Simulated assay, not measured.
Amino acid sequence: MNIIFWAVVLFGSCYSFWYAYYLIKDKNKLGAFGMVLVGCLISGLSFMVRLN
């Protein structure tokens, strides 16, 4: 269960950072900032989850 959790967290954060890069190339800096914020929240808040 722990490995699946970390795989989902890593996939979600990497995907949001990749999409932010795509938005920067598309000249949408506000959307890119939002996606970077989402990626940071995914990776940051995952440390608050406690799996038994």
Rank of each mutant, 00 (worst) to 15 (best):
L45Y: 11
W18M: 07
L51A: 02
L10A: 15
N28S: 07
S13C: 13
G39K: 02
K29G: 01
N28G: 00
V49E: 04
M1R: 10
M1E: 12
S46T: 02
D26H: 10
D26I: 01
S43H: 01
A7D: 10
W6V: 05
S13K: 01
K25C: 07
S43Y: 10
C14Y: 07
L41K: 02
F17M: 13
W18G: 07
S13D: 05
F5Q: 02
V8G: 04
L23V: 01
S46Q: 08
M48N: 11
Y22H: 09
L10E: 06
L30A: 10
Y22M: 09
A20W: 03
V49N: 04
S16W: 02
R50K: 11
F11S: 10
V9G: 01
A7N: 12
F47D: 05
F11E: 06
C14L: 13
C14A: 15
A32T: 05
S13E: 08
V9C: 05
G31W: 03
A20G: 11
F11L: 15
V49S: 03
N2A: 09
A20F: 06
Y15M: 12
A32L: 03
F33E: 08
G44M: 01
F5H: 14
V49F: 07
D26F: 06
S13R: 01
V38D: 02
L10T: 11
S46P: 01
L30C: 00
A7H: 06
I3R: 13
V9T: 07
V49I: 15
G31I: 02
L41D: 05
W6Q: 12
R50Y: 10
I4C: 09
I4M: 08
D26R: 15
Y19I: 01
V38T: 12
M1T: 10
C14S: 14
W6L: 08
C14T: 14
L45M: 09
N2R: 15
Y15D: 05
F33T: 14
G39D: 03
L45V: 15
G44D: 03
G44F: 04
K27T: 06
K25F: 06
M35Q: 04
I24V: 14
W6S: 05
F33N: 08
G12L: 04
C40D: 04
L30T: 12
V9A: 00
I3F: 07
I4Q: 13
A32W: 05
L23R: 13
D26V: 04
A7C: 06
I24H: 07
L30R: 15
M48P: 03
V49T: 10
W18K: 06
K25E: 14
L45C: 09
V8T: 12
N2G: 13
L30S: 09
I24W: 05
L51Y: 06
C14K: 06
C14H: 04
I24G: 01
I4W: 06
G39W: 08
V38P: 02
R50S: 05
G34A: 15
V49M: 11
F17K: 02
L51M: 11
L45S: 07
V36F: 12
N2Q: 15
S16T: 14
K25T: 12
K29M: 13
L23T: 01
I4E: 13
